[in-house]
Amino acid sequence: MTTKEIVLQVLDAFDNNDVEKILSFFADDVEWTMRGSSVTVMNGKDSVYKFFGGMEDIKMVSSTKDHIVVDGNIAAVDGLVQCKGKNGEEMAMYYADFYELENDKVKKLSSYIVDKKE
């Protein structure tokens, strides 16, 4: 699979709230850094799995992929995600994700998240 095909599979898994599929594309020692109003760093699949466990009440409703840029084993994707929380509250965030692949697995993911203001 190409870098773009792998990243598209990961994005599809995010869209479908499929944690197991997302993790199947991550390296065991993946490093995921999320930057927004705070910074969260997850090291390893177990850390990512625990993060998703704390987010199980939040479901993806829709997302856009405004740009997908691939250069070798690096890909960048940006767009808007809309999620729904456990009490039905809706959240919308702009995102930019940078993927670095190694041996066809996501080795490093950097996410930038900004709440959409109405």
Rank of each mutant, 00 (worst) to 15 (best):
V81P: 05
E100G: 07
A13L: 09
V41Q: 08
D46L: 15
S111R: 03
V114Y: 07
L23E: 00
K108D: 07
K108H: 11
Y95P: 05
K65Y: 10
D28I: 13
K105L: 06
D18F: 13
V114W: 00
F98T: 10
T40P: 07
Q82D: 14
I58P: 01
I58G: 01
M55G: 03
L80D: 09
K116A: 12
D12S: 10
C83N: 09
M91W: 10
V114S: 12
K107S: 13
I68C: 03
K50R: 12
S24H: 06
W32F: 11
S110Y: 12
E100T: 14
F26E: 05
Y112L: 13
K116Q: 12
K21M: 14
D29P: 00
S38R: 00
G36S: 04
K59I: 05
E118W: 12
H67G: 06
T33K: 15
F26S: 05
G79Q: 10
I22C: 13
K117Y: 09
V69P: 01
S24A: 10
L8N: 14
G44Y: 14
M60V: 13
G72Q: 04
S63H: 15
G36W: 06
M34W: 01
K21H: 08
D18I: 09
S24L: 05
E102G: 04
L80K: 07
V19Y: 02
D66N: 15
F98V: 13
N103D: 15
K4W: 03
V81F: 07
M42N: 07
S24D: 05
K105D: 04
N16Y: 09
L80T: 11
F14D: 13
D18K: 00
E90F: 15
V114L: 12
S38C: 00
V41K: 10
V69G: 02
V61C: 05
S47I: 12
A92M: 14
A76T: 13
Y94E: 10
E90D: 02
K117H: 11
K59H: 08
E5W: 00
Q82C: 10
D78I: 11
V81D: 14
I22N: 02
S111Q: 06
Q82V: 15
D57M: 05
V10E: 07
A27W: 13
V77E: 04
K117C: 09
V39I: 13
E89P: 02
N43V: 15
D97Q: 01
A75C: 12
D71W: 06
F52V: 07
S63T: 11
D71N: 15
Y49W: 01
V114P: 02
S38N: 05
S111Y: 04
V30A: 00
S47Y: 07
S47P: 03
C83P: 00
M34T: 10
H67I: 14
E5A: 14
N87G: 07
E118F: 12
A13C: 07
D115Y: 06
V70K: 01
N103R: 11
L23Q: 03
G36E: 02
L109Q: 02
V61S: 00
K117A: 14
D104N: 15
T3K: 08
E102P: 00
D97M: 01
Q9L: 08
R35H: 06
V69L: 09
